[in-house]
Computed example of a mutant assay.
Amino acid sequence: MLIYHVATLADWTAAQAAGAYTTSTYGVSLAQEGFLHCSREDQWRGVLSRYYTDVPEPLVLLAIDTDLVTVPVAEEPPAPGVSETYPHVYGALDPAAVVEVRSLDETSR
C-alpha cells in the first residue's frame, strides 16, 4: 500500500544523505512528535492546503510503500474526537521505502 508525506526538499535531501527521514511535519521532528504524519492518496492534497500553503521553501510529496517500511505503521485519528484516520509511521523512515518523489511547485498548492 502507498501512503504519502509532504516534505521540504531540504529535509528529503538531508534524509537521503543521512539514511533516515525524521521530520514529522514542517518544523517538527520525529523525536518531538513520536511518529511521522502521513496520509492516504485521498488525503494529501487537504494536508497540503491546510498546513503547507505558507511554507516558503520547495516541497515534495513522498510516496511510501508500506511493504518496505521497517518500523510500525498505524492508522489513527490525528486528534481526540476526530473520526477520520491517517497513517502514522512510528520510527525513522528508510529512504529506500520511498518509491516516488513528486515536486510540489506553487501550482500544486
Rank of each mutant, 00 (worst) to 15 (best):
M1K: 11
Y4R: 03
H5C: 05
V6Y: 05
V6H: 04
T8A: 11
D11M: 11
W12T: 04
A15D: 02
A17Y: 02
A17F: 04
A17N: 06
A17V: 06
A18Y: 07
A18N: 12
A18L: 13
A20W: 05
Y21L: 08
T22D: 03
V28Q: 12
V28N: 12
S29A: 07
A31E: 15
A31F: 06
Q32T: 14
E33V: 05
G34C: 08
G34N: 07
F35N: 13
L36N: 00
H37T: 14
H37E: 10
C38V: 01
D42A: 13
D42Y: 14
Q43F: 13
Q43A: 05
Q43C: 12
W44R: 05
R45L: 11
G46T: 13
V47A: 12
L48Q: 05
L48D: 07
R50W: 13
R50E: 15
Y52C: 00
Y52M: 00
Y52H: 06
T53P: 02
T53R: 12
D54C: 04
V55Q: 01
V55F: 01
V55D: 02
P56W: 01
L59T: 00
V60T: 00
L62R: 02
I64E: 09
D67V: 10
D67G: 15
L68Q: 03
V69G: 03
V73N: 05
A74N: 13
E76Q: 14
G81I: 11
G81M: 09
V82S: 02
Y86R: 10
P87E: 09
H88Y: 04
H88W: 06
Y90A: 03
G91R: 00
A92K: 06
L93M: 10
D94V: 12
A96Y: 04
V98E: 04
V98Q: 06
E100Q: 15
V101D: 04
V101I: 09
R102H: 12
S103F: 14
L104Y: 03
L104V: 01
E106Y: 11
E106H: 10
E106F: 10
E106M: 15
T107E: 15
R109P: 00
